[in-house]
Write a protein that binds this DNA or RNA. Structure first.
Length: 450
RNA sequence: GUGGCCAUAGUUUAACGGUAGAACAGCGGGUUGUGGUCCCGCUGGCGAGGGUUCAACUCCCUCUGGUCACCCCA
């Protein structure tokens, strides 16, 4: 007796049987699935990164998602928001303190040191593409697992590297159809940064009562952050505030000027932004961010990426003093822009659908599918379906141009039917020449379009 | 971490203080050999927990989650 709901004679319990199925699982907060429908966009971006890096002789590297917690504490900086409150850190059963990487630069520097890449011709140019993790409150364009594409160039201090990095980042977006402007600044050496920080505090402290609560906290904790406060009252105060460029030493100024000259040379649009400082401690000299120029809403997450020079980082991580620079781009945001740009990306179309009837037909179809696949014909099937009607329906929905039908009769006759799905006509062909016949037909139908 | 808005089938949604309709999708049919239209059927739902009430999906609270903004960043 099958346990069907209908036939179950159990009207005794009005409550019904406690046959509740287990609760399905949801998603961990802030993470998401990237579904097949979105894959074409992700693929487009990835392939762009790949070909561009190829062109610039940048090699791919993949580092582990899991690293020792200390790596990020030391590199990103203990006082930063990332380290203070955004890291996915935990202790393993083996008592190791590990963290899901919140960014990728530190890992790459670690790898550079670990594998003695200083023995390679410098600079070592590496690119990565992978998920990063930050425990922030999710919102538009911000996830706890998000993807970054980045390039790092390690072992060269020349300003041309900085410019080239900005160029690659900008070019990547440009070639995807996203126009951006590079906002750029220099924060000089760590010393000039400290001096500037003091000057900034000296400037704002007397005006403290005009600051918002939020900005008062910043004044104490991270004065450089005052510069990108969105408090309208800050606008006036900022105008008079000291600018970091004035605190740069001569070599730093010179370096920055050269970066700008190189950008001019290759036509990368940029804006000097005296108030651009970045949230990670390891930056020195050049810092930049890329902004979508079509984005009118300033408050939204319009920063698509950023980067800069980090000459001190290698040493902090226990390597030899090694100059380096890099950038990272937020792929999640970029992909959402891509989708907005091109709502329908052409799908890879199925050319042929193999439909079968009966056991003999199915066997023949199975083999036929292999023949077609080996002939590089994009073929689809639904071998598990028995009904020819259902199969034709699927063929139609897949957009197949041709259907091949093999049933009992065809197997016995040694034939197959080739159906033109657009015209609705079909013909019987020799079963051994299906691929050949198909190729002839395909060549014919393609001629006019070429 | 703070605040605004939101929470009904896979998706988009309707209604009502008295135990939920629809559309699309999925699956299956419309004489077990043929698609794009049409017709029919089936599957499938009130985020969780409290409270008010004779009675809550509907009102209140909490939580969870989503979303948007702040913080910060990609």
């Amino acid at each position: 007796m099958p346990l069907t709901k209908k036939t179950a004679p159990a009207p005794k319990k009005p409550e019904g049987p406690s046959k509740k199925s287990p609760q399905p699982f949801g998603l961990v907060r802030g993470v998401r699935d990237i579904l097949p429908a979105d894959q074409p966009y992700w693929r487009q971006a990835f392939e762009m990164a790949q070909s561009l890096c190829d062109a610039y002789s940048v090699d791919r590297i993949e580092t582990p998602v899991l690293e020792e917690t200390g790596l990020f504490v030391r590199s990103v900086g203990k006082q930063t928001d990332i380290v203070e409150k955004e890291m996915f850190s935990f202790e393993t059963t083996g008592n190791e303190h590990v963290t899901l990487r919140p960014e990728n630069t530190a890992s790459i520097c670690r790898a550079y040191i670990h594998h003695g890449m200083l023995n390679l011709p410098q600079p070592v140019k590496l690119w990565y593409w992978g998920p990063q993790f930050r425990h922030e409150r999710p919102q538009s364009g911000r996830y706890r697992q998000f993807w970054q594409y980045g390039v790092e160039m390690i072992g060269e201090s020349d300003a041309v590297i900085d410019a080239q990095l900005a160029l690659i980042a900008w070019r990547f977006l440009k070639d995807l159809g996203i126009d951006t402007v590079v906002r750029i600044n220099s924060i000089g050496t760590p010393e000039s940064r400290v001096n500037y920080r003091n000057a900034l505090v000296a400037y704002f402290r007397p005006k403290r009562n005009r600051l918002s609560e939020e900005d008062k906290k910043r004044l104490l904790k991270n004065p450089l952050r005052l510069l990108d406060s969105k408090d309208p009252a800050m606008a006036e105060l900022k105008a008079e505030a000291p600018q970091i460029v004035d605190w740069l030493d001569e070599p730093s100024k010179n370096h920055f000027m050269r970066v700008l000259e190189y950008l001019d040379e290759v036509g990368v649009p940029y804006q000097l932004d005296p108030f651009l400082v970045r949230g990670l401690d390891y930056y020195t000299q050049t810092v930049f961010e890329l902004y979508d120029t079509s984005e009118t809403d300033e408050t939204a997450q319009s920063a698509l990426g950023g980067g800069g020079r980090y000459d001190g980082l290698m040493e902090i991580l226990g390597g030899r003093p090694t100059p380096a620079a890099g950038f990272a781009l937020g792929i999640d945001r970029i992909v959402s822009k891509l989708k907005a740009l091109k709502p329908t990306l052409p799908e890879k179309k199925v050319e042929v659908f193999v439909a079968q009837l009966g056991e003999a037909g199915r066997k023949r179809a199975l083999a036929l599918f292999e023949e077609l696949r080996l002939a590089n014909i994009k073929t689809a099937e639904a071998f598990a379906k028995g009904s020819i009607k259902t199969q034709m329906d699927i063929a139609n929905r897949l957009g197949a141009r041709w259907a091949i039908i093999v049933g009992q009769k065809e197997v016995l006759d040694g034939t197959a039917i080739i159906r033109d799905m657009d015209a609705g006509t079909q013909e019987i062909v020799d079963g051994r020449k299906v691929v050949h016949e198909l190729q002839k037909k395909m060549a014919l139908t393609q001629q006019p379009t070429v």
